[in-house]
């Protein structure tokens, strides 16, 4: 009898959990699903009531974007800016983070805090000084300027993250490697670095997301030639109306690479973000 009761209780709990999860999932996915579906409809079909879930999809919006508009260029700009900034932030952040975690010098904690505090600056507060600097060095409207702007935010973040990962690694393994015949740098990249790989991937994804999704920097520092996709979307809102179809299609294109990247490295992402939580 008791066993049966327990089974029923377990069943109820399960039903409850799955219902809650379903609601949460619908809540989160609904706008995305609507966006993706809308991007495959004609403008007229988009607002028909009740909304249709089964229809003949059309890729005319996408075809138009890539063939007629400058969308290919914007996509390229976005990819270049976010990848470059992420790459620079990861390389320098990993080296700097390792130095701060392992370096045994006075004030390391203060330096680390000062570095992460630059990441706490609101983007709006950073735009003005960066604008002045970029104007002086003729970086306005250039891809390089945008990469620098993203890196000012991504580098301290990456450095802080990597520092935390390295600090949690017991130094004995690097010592063992050094006794085994490794230089300090070999101990770093052959022993320490592989062990924080999940953390490195997680940090990279977060840096990539920041740069990929950014609107504020791109809207100020880019010219027509260096515009990124988020800026391009904003330009679809004009006095004559909103190009809904293109907005939905562009939105889908923005989300897609992050979604794929997130799924591909999901394992590392979870391990990286929970590093330190599990001993």
């Amino acid at each position: 009898m008791a066993g049966k009761q327990l089974l029923t209780r377990k069943l109820i709990a399960r039903v409850f959990i799955y219902t809650a999860l379903t609601i949460a999932m619908v809540w989160a996915l609904m706008p995305i699903v609507w966006m993706v579906l809308s991007s495959l409809k004609t403008q007229a079909g988009m607002f028909s009531m009740p909304p249709k879930f089964i229809f003949k999809p059309t890729f005319s919006t996408y075809a138009f974007m890539f063939n007629e508009g400058n969308f290919g260029l914007f996509l390229k700009n976005s990819v270049i800016a976010s990848l470059s900034s992420t790459f620079i932030a990861l390389v320098l952040g990993t080296l700097g983070g390792y130095a701060l975690a392992r370096g045994n010098y006075k004030g390391a904690k203060h330096i680390a805090f000062w570095i992460i505090s630059t990441r706490m600056t609101p983007i709006a507060a950073a735009i003005v000084p960066l604008y002045l600097i970029f104007a002086k060095f003729h970086l306005m409207g250039t891809a390089l300027g945008l990469v620098i702007a993203y890196t000012t935010f991504n580098l301290p973040f990456a450095l802080w993250m990597m520092m935390t990962f390295f600090a949690e690694l017991p130094p004995d393994m690097e010592h063992a490697a050094m006794v085994d015949g490794a230089t300090k740098f070999q101990a770093f990249y052959k022993i320490a670095l592989p062990q924080v790989a999940p953390g490195l991937v997680a940090t990279g994804i977060l840096c990539l997301m920041f740069a990929w999704n950014d609107f504020a920097f791109a809207s100020v520092f880019t010219s027509h030639k260096t515009q990124t996709i988020p800026v391009a979307v904003s330009l679809l809102v004009s006095q004559t109306g909103i190009a809904w179809g293109q907005a939905m299609a562009t939105g889908t294109v923005i989300i897609l690479p992050m979604l794929v990247a997130g799924l591909a490295v999901r394992k590392y992402l979870v391990r990286g973000l929970s590093m330190g939580a599990i001993k």
């Binding site: 017991p170 393994m173 010592h175 490697a177």
Partner: peptide
């Protein structure tokens, strides 16, 4: 080493 310090990867 006391905790062996094997390379886990």
């Amino acid at each position: 080493f006391q905790n062996y310090a094997l390379y886990p990867h």
